[in-house]
Amino acid sequence: MRKALGLLLLRVSLGGLLLVWGVNKIVNVDHSLAIADNFYAGFLSSEFLLPLWGVSQLVIGLLVIIGLARRWVYPLQLVINGASLLAVFPSVIDPWGWFLEGTNVLFYPSSIILAASLVMMAFRDEDRLALDARRKSRPSTWVGRHQCGQVVRQR
Rank of each mutant, 00 (worst) to 15 (best):
R128K: 12
R138I: 11
R134D: 02
W142F: 15
R145W: 08
A133P: 00
R134V: 09
D125E: 14
V143E: 12
C148R: 09
H146D: 01
L129F: 15
A133L: 03
R134H: 11
L129P: 00
A122T: 08
L129D: 01
G149M: 04
H146G: 03
E126D: 12
L131C: 06
D132E: 15
D125V: 01
A122C: 04
I112E: 10
S137Q: 11
S117V: 04
H146N: 14
I113V: 15
V143Y: 03
G149N: 07
H146L: 12
K136T: 11
D127E: 08
V119M: 08
F123D: 10
G149F: 04
W142K: 05
E126S: 11
V143L: 13
T141Q: 07
L129V: 08
V119Y: 08
S137W: 06
A115C: 09
I112M: 14
Q150F: 13
K136I: 05
S117H: 01
V119E: 03
M120W: 00
R128S: 11
L118Q: 02
V143R: 14
R135W: 14
E126Y: 05
Q147N: 06
V151C: 03
D132L: 12
C148V: 10
Q147R: 13
A116I: 01
D125R: 12
A133M: 01
L118C: 14
Q147T: 10
V143H: 03
P139A: 09
R128H: 11
E126W: 05
I113N: 00
M121T: 04
L131M: 13
V152Q: 13
M120V: 05
V143P: 02
D127W: 00
Q147Y: 08
R128M: 05
R135N: 07
D132K: 09
V143D: 11
F123Y: 15
G144N: 14
H146F: 11
V152W: 01
A115M: 14
